[in-house]
Design a protein around this nucleic acid. Sequence first.
DNA 1: ATTGCTTTGATAGTAAAACTATTATAATTA
DNA 2: TAATTATAATAGTTTTACTATCAAAGCAAT
Lengths: 249, 249
Amino acid sequence: MQLLAIELDVNEKLCIRNPQRTDLGRKILKNSILLLNEIGFERFTFKKLAQQMDSTEASIYRYFESKHLLLLYLLNWYWEWIKFSIGLRLMNISKPQEKLRAVISTIVDTAKRNAKVDFIDEDILHRIVVVEGTKAYHSKEVDEQNKEGFFLSYKSLCQKIADILLEINPLFPYPRAMASNLLEMANNHIYFAQHLPRLTDIENDSNVMQKVEDLLLFFAFKLINPTGEESAVLKKDEKKKRMLIQDIS
Amino acid sequence: MQLLAIELDVNEKLCIRNPQRTDLGRKILKNSILLLNEIGFERFTFKKLAQQMDSTEASIYRYFESKHLLLLYLLNWYWEWIKFSIGLRLMNISKPQEKLRAVISTIVDTAKRNAKVDFIDEDILHRIVVVEGTKAYHSKEVDEQNKEGFFLSYKSLCQKIADILLEINPLFPYPRAMASNLLEMANNHIYFAQHLPRLTDIENDSNVMQKVEDLLLFFAFKLINPTGEESAVLKKDEKKKRMLIQDIS
DNA sequence: ATTGCTTTGATAGTAAAACTATTATAATTA
DNA sequence: TAATTATAATAGTTTTACTATCAAAGCAAT
C-alpha cells in the first residue's frame, strides 16, 4: 500500500482556488468528508464545518462557492482516484475478462485499492459517494454543469469500463449503459443492504462488499456473454481475421 | 383509458391530513407536481407553491410537515399507482415471460398505462420521479422513515416484480436486486439520455421510452435465463412434478 | 527593516428558506 | 343556531446561504 503525495486532476472550475495546494484547503477537504459522513449533505453547512475545523465560514467560501460545488469536488476527486486505482490494477492484466473482474473489485471495495492520500480518508469518502453520489447530477443545473465539464471524470470512468466490455464482446449493444449501471449498482446495493434490505438480496453481514462484488460479477458476465447469433458473427470475424493474417504472412 | 375517482392508499403518516379528500389538498398535489417539475426539488418552497396556487404557506403546512414529506407523498402515490396499473395489465396474462414484458412496459412508459386520475398529471409526475426519485431514500432519516413505513409501496412494488422473476426462473439468485435494478435503470436511462448521454447508449430522439424499454428487456431476459446448471436442476424438478402428478391421478 | 501582497480570521450584515403562532372569517355539521 | 373545522391573512422566529469589510499574520522582494 503506497502513500501518495500526488495531486489528482480535478476540474478547476469546481473551486475558487485549489484546495489540494494549501493547508487550509486540505483541512477543508479532510473535515468536510468527516462532517458529511456524520450528518449528511442536507444538514451539512459551511458554518458547522467552520466550527468543527476551527476556522470561519468566510474562509471556506474563499475555496468553494457553495456546498453543492464542494460535494461535486469531492465526487470528482473520488472518480479520478478510482480511475487512477483501476489504471494501476490493469497494468499487469491482459485478458479482458480479468480486467472486468479487477474493475468490479475496485469500484466496490475501497479496502482492495492500493493507493492512499494522506489528507483524504478514502473509506469515508466512499461512504459519502454511496449515500450522496446521485445528488451530483440530479438537479436543475445538470445541463449547465455538464457543459462546464463537472461530470467528465465520471463519464470517462464509465467509458473506460465500457471499453473493457467491448473488448470482451465487441458486439455487445449496451456497453455504456452497462458500465454506468455497474457503477450505480455497486453503490445502490451497498446502501440497500444497510438501509432497505428488501430492495436487494445482499445480506447486511460482515461481508457486504464481497457479496456486492459477487452480484456485479454475476450480472456482468451473464450479460456480456454473446448470444448465439452474436457468437456466430464473432466466429465468422475471427475466421476472416485469421485468413487475413495468413494472406499477410 | 378510464378516468378514476379512486383514492390510492398512501401512508397516512406522510401527511397531516389526507390531501386526496379536500379541494385544497388536491390543489396542493396538482400544483406541487407542476412546480416541482418546473423548478426542481431544491428550489421548490412552500411559499412559491402558495403563490402559484393562490393560497398561503400556513395552509399548505396544515397538509404537509415539510417539502421532503410532500415529495415522499407524491412518490408513494406514484408507486401505488404503478402497482395498480401493473395489476390491471397482468389480469389477462398467465405466461410469466409475458408478465415481465408487461411490467417493463408499465414502469418505463406512462403513456402506455391505462388509468388516469383527474387531479394528478401522471406524465409530469413521472418526470419528477425520474429526476427526484432517489432523493426519497438517500438521506440521514432513511432508517427512521423506513420504520414508519414510508417505503412500503416501493418495496412491495419491487417484491411484485421479484415474484414474477422467480416464476420465470425459481433458481434465480438475485430476484430482488434485479427488480430494484430494473426500476432504477428505467429512471436513470431516461434521465441520462436527456442530460448525460455518454452514460447510456440510448439516443435522445423521439423514441427514448421505447429504447429504454428495449434496453430493460434485453437486460432482464438475458439475466433471468437459467444457466446450464440451473436449467438441469429445473428439468429434474419438472420431471419429479410430472411423476407426482401421475402418482396422484 | 520596510513595503507590498496574499491568506486567513473576526465580525457584521442581508435575503431567503423553513417553519410556528395568532386571529379572523368562511364553510360544514350536529 | 351553535359548534366545529378549514382556510386565509398576517406576523414573527430561527436557520441557511451567502456577501462585505477590515485587521492581523506571514512571506517575498527591495
